[in-house]
Amino acid sequence: MKPWIIKYSPKCHADIPQQKSALSLKSFVKDFKKQKKNAALLYGPAGSCKSCAVHALANELNLEVVEVNASDVRNANQINEKLGNALKQQSLFSRGKVILFDEIDGVSGNKDRGGIPALVKLITNTSFPVILTANNPFDKKFSSLRNKSLKIEFPSLSYLEIYNVLKGICEKESIEFEDSALKALARRAGGDLRAAINDLQSLTYSKKLTKADIDSLSERNQIETIENALIKVLKNSDPVIALSAFNDVGLDLDKCLLWVDYNMPKEYTDAADLKRAYEYISRADVFRGRIRRWQHWHFLVYVNMLLTAGVASAKTKKYKSNIKYQQTTRLLKIWQANMKYAKRKAIAQKIAEKTHCSTRRALHSTLPYLKAIFQNNQEIAFKMAEEFDFDDDEVSWLRK
């Protein structure tokens, strides 16, 4: 039996639920020769139609898809071997083509050294549109790729959007279904359309879908809000309940610690309770330091235990005050600082690439002189802008 995720995959951009994202991608591919950037970076959670949007668009525009997965091609040699010729040679029967580099999140670690720079270099010289997909493209290691790519977000699908797709499949497959059961299946998917279609196929061999079928399906982990997780820690005194508070939160423990640290003083008004809670947080921070220093990742168990069960058990009473939990302003200040220096860093990365030095060296040794040239000698500045491939915004920044 053919998997339904293949049988009912989109055939054109109009079949993609995220129409705004699909149209942006279509515009990039159709007008590739006019684009300032040679690659598009599609990002969003698993099951948000990133890869299938590329295949649907290629089918609509009669393009060949050359697909490479990051789990198969990781270091510089493999990337050059697999993609080098594909980015330069014409497709079979003189068709156009797109290069899909799927799940770039998989490129990491020492074994993948040189992979990202090699990919950036190939993108710079490509004759065909390159499309990258990622769940989290904002990792520091992808900064050079982000600068070379047009970023297109594929947001998580709502349960109603998933429900409409599942309903259409049921009608085509002549499946009898309870409307409440189909909606429950859509909610369980957690925004992952691919998972929802797979679940539907596995549950409907009898051509029926009932609430009992949904109940038999193992619960898919849902992303829980950080506010609900904080309630389990700060409002609750049972360490067993608190221990799993951050399991299904889409944040790492470092960010969870900042949330607890910022909101705990508002909740714990008793000084003795607050003192004990901060002792647990300080111990958790000690283990975080050991993880960074020695890479002993099994210490995460202790960080989680101290941050959840420890903080919850520190209080002698349950506080009844109604506190609105807020995000720490520290992250906002870090973000503002990063945004302030992002343009400067992007320019330094381009200088480093051309002058074969580190970004840090280019930032401190070359950029100040380059800025002086752009402010005082327009003729040389124009030639240097071409050489370093500065865009209009970067040239404007250098002239300030």
Rank of each mutant, 00 (worst) to 15 (best):
D392L: 14
N110A: 14
P265E: 09
S48H: 05
N263F: 08
W335I: 09
N136Y: 13
Y302I: 07
V65G: 03
S396M: 12
Y262N: 06
Y268N: 05
Y8A: 02
A118L: 09
Q35S: 15
I123E: 02
A86H: 02
V301G: 06
R74K: 13
G190V: 09
D285G: 07
N75W: 05
R220P: 05
V29I: 13
L185F: 07
E176S: 14
L57K: 03
S158F: 04
R188I: 08
A352K: 11
R288Q: 11
Q349M: 15
L367A: 09
D31N: 14
S48C: 13
I6T: 08
M384K: 12
R74G: 04
D192R: 09
C357K: 13
H364W: 07
N38T: 01
L41F: 10
A309V: 01
L42H: 01
D285P: 01
S21V: 11
E64G: 01
D72A: 03
T210K: 15
T225Q: 12
F93K: 11
E67H: 02
Y205E: 15
T329M: 14
K167M: 12
L166D: 02
I231E: 15
F32I: 03
N136G: 02
R276N: 07
L122R: 06
A348W: 10
C170Q: 10
T204M: 08
I131G: 01
L370E: 02
Q336E: 15
I131Y: 00
K318H: 12
A70N: 01
C12D: 12
L57T: 02
K324Y: 00
E64P: 00
L42M: 04
I104D: 00
L253M: 15
T308I: 05
R293T: 10
A39W: 00
T308F: 05
